[in-house]
Simulated scan of single mutants.
Amino acid sequence: MDVLINVFIGLHIIGIASLLGGFLTQMKAMSTGTARFTPAMLHGALTMLVTGVVLVGLNQMDGNPVNNIKVGVKLAILFVILCLVYVKRDEEQVEKALFGTVGGLTVINIFIAVLWH
């Protein structure tokens, strides 16, 4: 079971990298007001959602403790990110504030995952 959990942790990190990487590559465009949500950002957020849910299930099946409050907070933040990226995915330009919000929420989600024990 540990190998399977580690595989899904790796996939979860790939999803985070895709979402955050998509944001970081658009930072220069954000300063000029031409940033847009890339497909990689949407796919990264979806990957995070699916692998996160699977990780919770696998850890519970394995008898590992799961902090349900932490998972709920992370899920709520990810849901906001997903909604924003999904709704605005086809627009050629996204407002700076909205684009920055997605980046900020992504970073907050990362820090919650790492620092909240």
Results as ranks from 00 to 15, higher is better:
99 F>K: 03
93 Q>Y: 12
39 P>M: 11
29 A>Q: 10
109 N>D: 14
90 D>P: 01
77 I>S: 05
15 G>L: 07
35 A>Y: 08
40 A>R: 11
25 T>K: 11
111 F>I: 15
104 G>T: 03
47 T>W: 10
27 M>F: 14
108 I>Q: 01
81 I>A: 02
88 K>M: 12
52 G>Q: 00
2 D>L: 11
75 L>W: 00
89 R>D: 07
71 V>P: 06
92 E>T: 12
46 L>P: 04
55 L>I: 07
64 N>T: 12
59 N>R: 15
78 L>N: 00
10 G>A: 15
42 L>Q: 09
93 Q>M: 12
4 L>G: 09
117 H>Y: 14
99 F>N: 02
16 I>L: 15
79 F>Y: 07
7 V>I: 15
61 M>E: 10
103 G>C: 11
71 V>Q: 10
69 I>W: 14
52 G>K: 02
91 E>L: 13
23 F>A: 11
3 V>Q: 09
10 G>R: 14
79 F>K: 01
7 V>G: 07
82 L>Q: 07
7 V>L: 14
21 G>K: 04
54 V>S: 10
68 N>S: 08
66 V>F: 01
45 A>C: 11
86 Y>R: 05
10 G>F: 14
93 Q>R: 13
83 C>F: 12
22 G>Q: 09
101 T>A: 01
34 T>V: 05
50 V>I: 15
19 L>C: 02
5 I>C: 08
4 L>H: 10
108 I>N: 05
18 S>N: 04
26 Q>Y: 02
42 L>F: 09
37 F>H: 09
50 V>T: 14
63 G>H: 06
17 A>R: 01
26 Q>H: 00
117 H>A: 15
67 N>R: 10
66 V>L: 03
96 K>D: 00
47 T>F: 11
69 I>P: 03
98 L>M: 08
114 V>R: 11
29 A>R: 11
8 F>E: 13
90 D>F: 11
29 A>M: 03
54 V>N: 08
5 I>P: 08
3 V>S: 06
74 K>N: 08
108 I>L: 15
94 V>R: 05
117 H>W: 15
93 Q>P: 02
99 F>H: 06
5 I>H: 12
11 L>W: 12
50 V>G: 07
23 F>Q: 11
71 V>G: 08
1 M>K: 11
